[in-house]
């Protein structure tokens, strides 16, 4: 938010002409699967643990986060690759995943989610006698 304000201050004349619209960033993710479940990793730089929400509604997984960046007073933007501080991305889950056993971990701006498969659906090795 405060970043947006800094941007606006720097180019207030240009911004007024454009319609007010909140930009939302789509974080890049890695997704891979092994026998126990699916692992999802998302880059969320500037996001601390308490500004992150991971929600499951039915079959829908939504990651929402807010980046917070400290800024000194009176700062003007000279250059900006990142012009928004909100992240959001959704995924559709499948039935074999146990949504109430999802584990989440946040470290250095990287979110790691583990979505376990139901035990009865995990592949079992059958011993041939």
């Amino acid at each position: 938010m405060s970043e947006n304000k800094a941007m606006k201050a720097a180019e207030s004349t240009q911004m007024q002409a454009r319609p007010e619209q909140e930009m939302i960033l789509r974080p890049p993710v890695d997704i891979y699967e092994d026998a126990s479940g699916i692992t999802l990793k998302a880059d969320l730089p500037g996001v601390s643990k308490d500004r992150l929400s991971v929600q499951v509604e039915g079959n829908n997984l939504t990651i929402e986060a807010q980046a917070v960046i400290e800024m000194p007073e009176g700062m003007e933007a000279l250059y900006a690759d990142v012009t928004a501080t909100r992240f959001r991305r959704s995924f559709t889950l499948s039935n074999e995943l146990e949504t109430d056993k999802i584990q989440a971990e946040m470290k250095d701006g990287v979110l790691s989610l583990h979505l376990p498969k139901r035990a009865e659906l995990q592949p079992r090795k059958i011993q041939v006698q």
């Binding site: 880059d43 969320l44 730089p45 960046i69 000194p72 700062m75 000279l78 690759d81 250095d108 990287v110």
Partner: peptide, 26 residues
């Protein structure tokens, strides 16, 4: 090029210049 990793923001105030490098998981 635009979109290169990592993304960078630069801000200037009378006393200092602040550079923010958005590089998670380093």
């Amino acid at each position: 090029a635009a979109g290169s990793f990592p993304a960078i923001n630069i801000g200037a105030s009378p006393k200092q210049v602040d550079v923010y490098v958005f590089a998670a998981g380093l």
